[in-house]
Amino acid sequence: MATDAALRRLLRLHRTEIAVAVDSAFPLLHALADHDVVPEDKFQETLHLKEKEGCPQAFHALLSWLLTQDSTAILDFWRVLFKDYNLERYGRLQPILDSFPKDVDLSQPRKGRKPPAVPKALVPPPRLPTKRKASEEARAAAPAALTPRGTASPGSQLKAKPPKKPESSAEQQRLPLGNGIQTMSASVQRAVAMSSGDVPGARGAVEGILIQQVFESGGSKKCIQVGGEFYTPSKFEDSGSGKNKARSSSGPKPLVRAKGAQGAAPGGGEARLGQQGSVPAPLALPSDPQLHQKNEDECAVCRDGGELICCDGCPRAFHLACLSPPLREIPSGTWRCSSCLQATVQEVQPRAEEPRPQEPPVETPLPPGLRSAGEEVRGPPGEPLAGMDTTLVYKHLPAPPSAAPLPGLDSSALHPLLCVGPEGQQNLAPGARCGVCGDGTDVLRCTHCAAAFHWRCHFPAGTSRPGTGLRCRSCSGDVTPAPVEGVLAPSPARLAPGPAKDDTASHEPALH
């Protein structure tokens, strides 16, 4: 009773807030009518008042009428009001819900409408889902798969039609296919003929059939049928067999079959498995989609049935006599038709004709302190090069084509190399640097090759510096006499390219 009084008091307290929050009759008014909170006449009256005075006034009048009803109607109103779709449509209802007392429970059932309790003993237990329907569909599909699609060729003596089998029958139906081979029951999904010589313990000319048996419980189990008994694959494991010639990621696949039913060829011909030897223990289905393919039931050349050999690369099948050149017997292992072999060759040939990528240039590290003349020119003028003790990398590039010797140069053309002071002394051009340390401070000019250098860098042994005729380390061993002091540049003949010694390969005349 306390809860009923509290709900009535809360409705009177929030009546105006609810009326202002509800700006549309749908969905709240319609939901109240659906849950029998508002009768039909009051529903029509509220809609009429909404058209006349507006939605807030109409709902305020409806809530005032609701306060005169019993506690069950008020409880049902609060339940409908706080439904998710009403809270989404009328956003101003959320503060009312947040301020609702926590001790007021809106989930209690309506009085007088409590459903009768059902004894637990009368409640049926839930049924577990079964796979009976899938099993029945598999039974119905198996006879259809064994139905012949056409008439065999005159040369083929193997013609068999499976008798119709009602689904209610649980007995196995067997077809006489000759040579002791028996087909599987209607619940078998796949059958492959297997030679009895590969099964340990088999006697006589009995041949087993590799099947997948579907049981009534819905589970499946792969086994071997020899005669009327089934054997699990673990009985046929043979770890010492060295003649297993397995197909790549293979499961067994029928390579020879008669049109209309699988079996042995007439005249004692023995149908073979995809792999010879003992049956392997793992009978998992292969991951290669080509091995799941269903080959055609007629020859791809003459479009006739009979004894066919199936290609492992495509769905086509052929007569042995229709092949070019014809085959006398079934080859062992994987067999592919000429079209598949030709496609494989065409895929391999473009790969062989692809040009080989060019090898990157060989990189040879230079000892610290040495650099090529090109690196000396590329440096920024007026700045010493940083990191001189790091190992430089010199790339061996292809030799350029031989060019004509340089033409003779006048001494005026070499004027930018040297600057003559007032006393006739050779001065260095701006930006000249030593080729060893890279520093341009207090550098000297070689009178023979006009290269800038430090005496301490080229002659670290402490050799005394002569007063005139300074030469760098590369030119100090040259027998050519030094030019007379005061000459602007060496003779043009000295600039012609010539053979250089091994220790002077990195010091070429550089223009500054």
Rank of each mutant, 00 (worst) to 15 (best):
D4R: 01
D4V: 03
D4S: 02
L7G: 01
R8Y: 00
R9Q: 12
L11Q: 05
L11P: 04
L11F: 02
R12D: 00
R15W: 02
R15I: 04
T16S: 00
I18M: 04
I18Q: 01
A19M: 15
V20P: 02
V20T: 02
A21S: 02
V22P: 01
D23A: 00
A31I: 03
A31Q: 07
D34W: 00
H35R: 01
H35A: 01
V38W: 00
E40Q: 05
T46F: 00
T46L: 00
T46N: 00
L47F: 05
H48G: 02
L49Q: 00
E51T: 01
K52C: 00
P56W: 02
P56D: 01
Q57P: 00
F59L: 02
F59S: 03
H60M: 04
L62S: 02
L63F: 03
S64T: 04
S64A: 01
Q69L: 01
S71V: 03
A73L: 05
I74P: 04
L75P: 01
D76A: 04
F77Q: 00
F77P: 00
V80F: 05
V80L: 05
V80Y: 05
F82I: 03
K83Q: 05
G91L: 03
R92Y: 00
L93G: 01
Q94Y: 03
I96W: 00
L97S: 01
K102P: 00
V104G: 01
V104N: 00
Q108P: 06
K114T: 13
K114F: 07
P115A: 07
P116I: 14
P116G: 05
K120R: 13
A121G: 14
L122H: 04
V123N: 10
V123Q: 14
P124D: 05
P126G: 14
T130Y: 11
K133T: 03
S135Q: 12
E137Q: 00
A138T: 10
A141P: 09
A142K: 03
P143D: 10
L146Y: 13
L146G: 03
T147E: 15
P148E: 15
G150I: 11
G150D: 00
T151H: 14
P154K: 00
G155S: 05
G155L: 04
Q157E: 13
A160I: 08
K164N: 15
K164R: 15
K165S: 05
E167S: 08
S168N: 05
Q173N: 15
R174I: 03
G178E: 04
G178V: 13
G180E: 03
I181F: 15
T183F: 03
S185W: 05
S187F: 01
V188M: 14
V188F: 09
M194Q: 08
M194I: 11
M194T: 03
G197L: 11
G197W: 03
D198G: 11
V199M: 12
G201H: 10
A202K: 02
A205E: 06
V206A: 07
V206I: 13
V206H: 09
G208E: 04
I209F: 08
I209W: 07
I211P: 01
I211W: 07
V214W: 04
F215P: 06
F215S: 04
E216Q: 09
S217N: 08
S217Y: 06
G219L: 12
S220Q: 00
K221Q: 05
K221G: 09
K222I: 02
C223G: 07
Q225H: 09
V226Q: 05
G227S: 03
G227K: 03
G227P: 04
E229Y: 00
Y231F: 11
T232C: 05
T232Q: 14
S234W: 07
F236W: 14
E237I: 08
S239L: 14
S239K: 01
G240C: 06
G240S: 11
N244G: 02
K245A: 14
A246L: 10
S250I: 11
G251W: 14
G251V: 13
P252G: 02
P252F: 09
K253P: 03
P254L: 10
L255Y: 09
L255M: 00
G260T: 13
A264H: 15
A265M: 15
G267A: 08
G268C: 13
G269F: 14
G269C: 08
